[in-house]
Design a protein around this nucleic acid. Structure first.
Lengths: 251, 251
DNA sequence: ACAAAAGTGTTTCCTATACACCCATGG
DNA sequence: CCATGGGTGTATAGGAAACACTTTTGT
């Protein structure tokens, strides 16, 4: 970055967009807002906001996450996804957006503020994403369909080699709960018997809390309960059954 | 991104930084420039430059790559690494940098322009990176040590599950050449016999060109030559021997 | 003939997978 | 005592790892 100090540089507006995922009723959901104003009035969009000149980018993202969900910031996972800076992505002005992925066990009260007429969780499978096998019909504002597609793929692949599935669960949880996260995110779950051996043999994925769940009204053996462990990675990974990859957006 | 259109937004300077990797003499090298001016005059830094208001970010990165290396843009791999936007990363002004990783088989004539007194390939192992087992002594400007650390990790992990090793080789190449890429990047190479079976059994990793290399002066059986295939991914991956992960920069 | 480098064969071990079976609870 | 869901045992197959061996070249 060879800055020439006395040169005038172009200036850009900077936003953070958040793809906030959670599991609801066995499906992967994402938090979206409905835009009240043009452009894309009436369309669904990712929550987010402008970065202030005094903010760290990460800090701005955490602040927006707090504002939009009210979740405990310390306990939720937030990571940068990538930066989307196409010239024409916002028809009004040049905006560079740093997209983030957040994984939360549940969302609190959702408030629709700042240019949004609504804010709700939407099933990812109901979205119209730029993927070959997209079935949903909900269209998205700006380039948010692309961002969400990338975000979903990030989450799917991270479940392979990290312990992040547990970040989508409230503690305590059972091994079957973790498996249901994989099922919701991948569309199919690994064999339960092998899955539990894998989880339990990975040091630090989960820690038993020494209690058992209370069975539902239909009975069944009580499940052992766990909390998240200190490990972040899974070695070796749990690999998905890999379909032939969708290379549509590769140059 | 609920834009309120009549609001004044903070403006940021935007740069692209490039971590351009190549293999030289069996080692992973990165292209660095030596800064001529303060701040960090005399320090090594990543090449890069400002994004113009009319540029796509990707486009700006490709332009810088061309300027700095003269490599054929069509044939080299370029991907976004991440965005670095800490408040204090540049002492003069608020600069947001979108870092990229490029993999090139070789670099052309390197010219030191725009605030750089030199530009050369440097062995990654000679750099002082924020890693537990960093042995090098070369210090870097701004937050470039962190960027390079992230970039190296990106390359190391991508060799596991993609065919990108071939992007670091001039065509045609032998299977031993690919293996030497793994050796340079990972520090150790997989067993040659198993490795060749793995590469050849992955459809589309390489394509035989029907010729053989001419052995060196010390003889040896001529190696079959290949060019890059159309596949981008390796399933299942070639996993590194995983050391316990360095979580130093995790929150 | 020997060294060097490419390429093949084979054995061993690990572990992912599949699935049968046992355990604990509610009705 | 049956249905339900949690949890264990075990046989099989496929691939990773290790390494001995063969092939093709230059000197």
């Amino acid at each position: 970055m060879p800055l020439k100090s006395n040169e005038h540089q172009a200036q850009f507006a900077l936003t953070v967009d958040l793809a906030i995922f959670t599991i609801k009723e066995g499906s992967l959901n994402i938090l979206l807002i409905k835009r009240a104003e043009d452009p894309f009035a009436g369309s669904w969009a990712l929550p987010g906001g402008f970065v202030d000149i005094k903010d760290d980018v990460e800090e701005a993202a955490r602040r927006e996450l707090q504002i939009e969900t009210g979740v405990d910031l310390q306990k939720s996972h937030l990571e940068q996804l990538g930066t989307y800076g196409r010239r024409d992505r916002d028809p009004r002005m040049r905006v560079i957006s740093v997209a983030h992925v957040a994984l939360v066990p549940s969302v609190g009260k959702i408030v629709a503020g700042g240019g949004a007429s609504a804010a709700t969780l939407v099933k990812v499978s109901d979205l119209n994403l730029p993927s070959s096998k997209s079935t949903g019909s909900i269209n998205l504002a700006f380039d948010h369909a692309q961002i969400i597609k990338d975000a979903v793929e990030r989450v799917r692949s991270k479940l392979e080699y990290t312990t992040l599935a547990a970040a989508l669960l409230n503690e305590p949880f059972s091994l079957a709960d973790i498996r249901s996260v994989y099922e919701a995110v991948w569309g199919r779950a690994p064999d339960i018997a092998n899955f539990r051996r894998k989880i339990l043999s990975t040091q630090g994925f989960v820690e038993a809390i020494g209690k058992a769940a209370i069975p539902g009204s239909k009975g069944g053996r009580p499940a052992t309960l766990y909390r998240r462990g200190s490990a972040n990675f899974l070695h070796p990974p749990i690999l998905r059954q890999h379909v032939v990859h969708d290379d549509a957006d590769m140059p």
